[in-house]
Computed example of a mutant assay.
Amino acid sequence: MEFDEAMNLTANYLATTVAQGLTGLELEGVVDVCPANASLLVRFDPDVLAPEELKRRAQELESQARTSTQHRAQTRIIEVPVWYQDPYTAEVVQRFREGYHQDPSGTDLDYAAHVNGLSDAAEFIRRHHGSPWLVSMVGFVAGLPFMYQLVPRERQLEVPKYLSPRTDTPPLTVGHGGCFACIYSVRGAGGYQMFGIAAAPIYDPAQELPDFRDFLILFRPGDLVKFRPVDEAEYRSIQEQVEAGTWRFKQAPVTFDVEAALADPDTYNRTLLEALDGAEN
């Protein structure tokens, strides 16, 4: 199901809402329901559930969501500590320049600042962590979130992907391609620009950390993310907590209001970030 040709908050709201509705119906024959940026994939067994019946149910849910007077969703906002300009991504950045990158002479952050008309990498970093992001979908590899910045379109950070994909990306790299941020959940190939490294896992297949007791993947579509810059000392401290099995992400429940986010993004973002003030790790 495609709700729009381009990613926007309304299309993403429809995708996640219809996905939740189909999941809640527990239709026999539905194998998987996977919401994406502006679309929805449903895997099903046509010998058990007729395609026309599935289409009818999905269209009913879409109609209900479109005609609702309030486009709101119960979700949560999660704080993600990030070591920007870390040595791990910096080393990989230097290995993949000639033939891979648009500007082999600089760093990914330097290039990102330049194409966004910003003064330097420091200003880009401030813009990157200064506003919350919406997890629009999870995929590509296990647990990798794609995130859409909750600012007016004219202020969104946009950076093209590498000219040619890398064969290496450090685990937990905070990357950016087009208008989307991501966190690489595992080490592997990739083409997004690299800005830093998240301090704690977002994918825990052994489910050893408290945040993963119910599921091995941290993020869900509809989650909100606030990046928080940390220095090396705090990064190392968080790593020690991860090793001890005591680390927990700071998070708080919130109601995401699509109309409020579109009408006055700056004011609404402040209310979202205030929800984290009283939260504990």
Rank of each mutant, 00 (worst) to 15 (best):
M1Q: 08
M1E: 08
Y13H: 04
Q20D: 09
L22A: 13
G24T: 07
G24M: 08
L25A: 06
E26K: 15
V30F: 08
P35W: 06
P46K: 05
L49E: 12
P51C: 13
L54I: 00
S68Q: 05
Q70S: 10
H71R: 07
A73H: 06
T75F: 02
I77F: 11
I78W: 02
V80L: 13
V80F: 14
P81Y: 03
V82P: 04
W83E: 06
Y84M: 10
Y84F: 15
Q85N: 10
D86E: 09
T89Y: 10
A90F: 09
V93M: 15
R95T: 04
F96S: 03
Y100R: 12
A112M: 00
A113R: 06
A113H: 04
N116V: 11
G117C: 11
L118N: 02
L118K: 02
L118G: 03
A122K: 14
I125A: 00
V135Q: 01
V138M: 02
F146N: 06
F146Y: 07
M147W: 00
Q149K: 08
V151I: 04
E154F: 04
V159Y: 03
T167V: 07
F180C: 06
A181F: 15
A189E: 12
I197L: 01
Y203P: 06
D204P: 04
P205K: 10
E208M: 15
L209A: 11
L216V: 14
I217G: 08
G222E: 11
G222F: 06
V225D: 13
R228M: 07
R228A: 05
A233G: 05
Y235M: 09
I238P: 01
Q239S: 12
T246F: 03
P253W: 13
V254P: 12
T255Y: 03
A260Q: 02
A261D: 04
A261T: 09
D266K: 15
N269S: 10
R270P: 03
R270G: 04
E274W: 08
G278N: 13
N281T: 07
